[in-house]
Amino acid sequence: MSLSTRKIVISGILGAVAILLGVTRIGFIPVPNLSGNATIMHVPAILGGVMEGPVVGALTGTIFGIFSFLNATIPLFADPLVAVLPRIFIGVTAYLAYAATRRINLVLSLVLAATVGTLTNTFLVLGMGILRGYLPAEAFWPIVLTNGLAEVVIATIITVALVLGIERARKGGASAKAS
C-alpha cells in the first residue's frame, strides 16, 4: 500500500477537524436523552470517505478514534478496541454506500452515506463495548434508538449541507480565486 501526498494531507487535515470538533465542544449537540449529547465528530470521516475515497475515510476515522482514546473521559473509550478499531470503518462504509448509489441521485447517496457511516459508528462502538463487558447487552437497543437515531438525523443534515456547499463553492470558487 502506498499513499499519495494528497491522501496523506487530506486525511491529516480532516482528522484535525474531527479533533477540533471535540476539543472546542462544537461537535456536540445537546439532545434530550440519557447521554445528553449527540456528536458529529465522526462526520469528517464520512466526508473523507465520500469526497476522497475509502483510504482517506479510514485514516480520518482512525485519527478520530485515537483522539477519543487519548482524551477518554469515560472508561468505555479508554480501551483502544472500543475507541479506535470501530472508527476505522466509518469512512469505509460511508464510501461504499455513497459509491453504490451515487449514480441514482447525489442527495440520496449523501443521505445514505451519512446514515450508514453514523450507524457503523454506533453499532460497532456499542457492539465492542458489550463484547468487552463495559455495557450490558440490554443497553444496546435503547442507546441505538435514543442516541443513534438523533446522531443519524444530525449527521445527515450536516453531511448533505457540507458536501453540497463545498461542491458549489468549489465550482464557483475557481473564478472567485482567480480574480
Binding site: L14, V17, I29, I157, L162, A169
Partner: peptide, 24 residues
Amino acid sequence: NFIQRTKQKIPILIPLLMSTFRRA
C-alpha cells in the same frame, strides 16, 4: 431544539471546511 442547533452549525462548518480544504 436539537434540529435548530444542528442547522446553526452549518454556517460555521461550511466556511471552516472550505478554508480547511484550501489549506490542504
